[in-house]
Design a protein around this nucleic acid. Structure first.
Lengths: 166, 166
DNA sequence: GATTAGCTGACTGAATTGCTTGGTTAAATA
DNA sequence: TATTTAACCAAGCAATTCAGTCAGCTAATC
């Protein structure tokens, strides 16, 4: 079992897509900027997400990615699985041939743990996350920060109270 | 978060100790043979287990390791922690400074997951495992296999029905 | 004094992670 | 039609970790 930045990035990026849905495709450059994830790394992750039918891509200017299903029908476990971070805690992938063909002493313990984790993560959909208050607050902060940066880059000044909040 | 052979080995070895408790110290050579774990790797793991006060060592002939507490007071989470495999699923170790000092979009999700896993694993003691039927069956098989090997190595023949079971 | 078994440190090959570089291709726009 | 945008793709890389080996040490027993 492994859960590193890779899986966390994938879930974060998918949640970003979910949060900004409805206004056409979202470019990876946008997600990269908002979430602080390297663009080319995102490209690699989205290649896997696309192969697993979690997102659809639109090429060309104004293009980007969209969720391929409604938010309520994509759960966190799927996303982590898609980028090859198995939530399985056994060493034998549940087969029970851990100790030279036989079941090892602790095999069932790891099976139980895998079930626990999987049940927890597959019970949480993107829709659930979007509705969480803490998620909405962070998203608001990120969007504000983004606007300010756009304003600054065109030479204007960001309002003082907003700058302080960032 | 990471759960590999390392943490699984540690728990398996500790369970082996628990299962064979009462007959004096258990040598790592015995555990190595029964559980199929490299002896020198076990030495490294037990150095950590000892530093974390989970086992006591006895040197010299007839020496080995013993649990430093009663089985009911050692849980699986502690053992995994001891060999440096954190069960923490956040990237910021729960601090919430995941995105350049600020909380990332999915921070609380990973906190919740960490809590889940920790609650599950810290609720299982070595004593609980020893009493499980599946554990007892595997232990029985391992002990029988061990006896047969001892008999074979002294030149005698193992009983046919036992050989078939292995 | 030989043996046993714990203890320690250095090292290694393989795998993975997170990321970069340097492209190509498809679609929109000027 | 030329240019720009942004998805797509492949190779490579530094750093880290894993699982394990090797060599040598020390403490206790016989």
């Amino acid at each position: 079992m492994r859960l590193t930045t890779k899986g966390r990035y994938a879930v974060t990026a998918m949640l970003d897509l979910a949060l900004h849905e409805g206004r056409g495709p979202i470019s990876l450059a946008d997600i990269s900027e908002r979430q602080g994830i390297s663009l080319s790394y995102l490209e690699q992750l989205f290649a896997k997400l696309r192969r697993n039918d979690l997102v659809r891509s639109v090429r060309g200017p104004g293009g980007g990615y969209q969720l391929s299903r409604e938010q309520g029908r994509i759960n966190v476990a799927e996303v982590i699985d898609a980028v090859n971070e198995s939530v399985d805690a056994t060493g034998c992938h549940g087969k029970g041939d851990c100790q030279s063909g036989q079941t090892c002493l602790t095999h069932n313990l790891w099976c139980d743990l895998s079930d626990q984790i999987h049940a927890f993560l597959s019970g949480i959909s993107l829709c659930d996350l979007v509705q969480r208050k803490d998620v909405q607050e962070v998203a608001l902060r990120q969007d504000r920060r983004r606007e300010d940066q756009l304003i600054m880059s065109t030479g204007e000044q960001a309002p003082a109270e907003r700058k302080a909040a960032v």
